[in-house]
């Protein structure tokens, strides 16, 4: 019955975590390491490391990895991944329906104005949380970050191109 448990656990994680992947990690750790012991703590650290260095949303990456590791097959990965994504899809559909209905409402319009200021803060916070000694190992990291910002903000360099260039620069520098 591990498949059902994987699905329901990740569904719960998807439903009750706000603020995206990094905010979800402690919750995932609590459920899969402490509560169900599907993976050990050191395996979890590995999974997080892999999830951060592979493309795609971290929450989806780690759900897939944990689902696969704990069962040894694709069905487990599928159960965990669909579990973590389904609440998103349901809530977003509800929001969409609600907003299409009330988009002319002055309350909704004002709510949006307030929300946007809050969201700028949330995104800035997400960036700030990643400025850790593990991610910014030396002065070169800061220079890379500033150069990347300048090239994509003012010179509209494509983010995908930027990632490839950064990867190449990393191999040369380190």
């Amino acid at each position: 019955m591990i498949y059902l448990q994987l699905f329901s656990t990740f569904f719960k994680i998807g439903l009750f975590s706000f603020g995206g992947g990094y905010a979800m990690l402690p919750l995932i750790q609590n459920e899969v390491v402490t509560r169900y012991q599907w993976v050990t703590n050191s395996k979890f650290a590995d999974i997080v490391a892999v999830s951060q260095v592979t493309p795609g949303p971290i929450a989806v990456n780690s759900a897939t990895y944990i689902g696969y590791t704990s069962t040894g097959n694709i069905l487990g990965a599928f159960c965990a991944t669909s579990g973590v994504c389904l609440p998103s899809i349901i809530v977003v559909v509800l929001l969409y329906v609600f907003l299409s209905k009330f988009k002319e409402s002055v309350y909704v319009k004002n709510a949006f104005k307030g929300l946007k200021t809050g969201v700028v803060g949330l995104i800035l916070g997400a960036a700030l949380m990643l400025m850790t000694p593990e991610n910014f190992i030396d002065y070169k990291s800061w220079i890379l970050c500033i150069l990347s910002f300048i090239t994509s903000y003012w010179f509209n360099l494509s983010p995908i191109t930027l990632i490839f260039i950064a990867g190449g620069v990393g191999i040369i520098l380190y």
Binding site: V53, S141, L144, S148, S152, L162, G170, L173
Partner: peptide
């Protein structure tokens, strides 16, 4: 190098 670029 990719990590600081992603923060940007």
């Amino acid at each position: 190098a990719i990590k600081p670029a992603s923060v940007a």
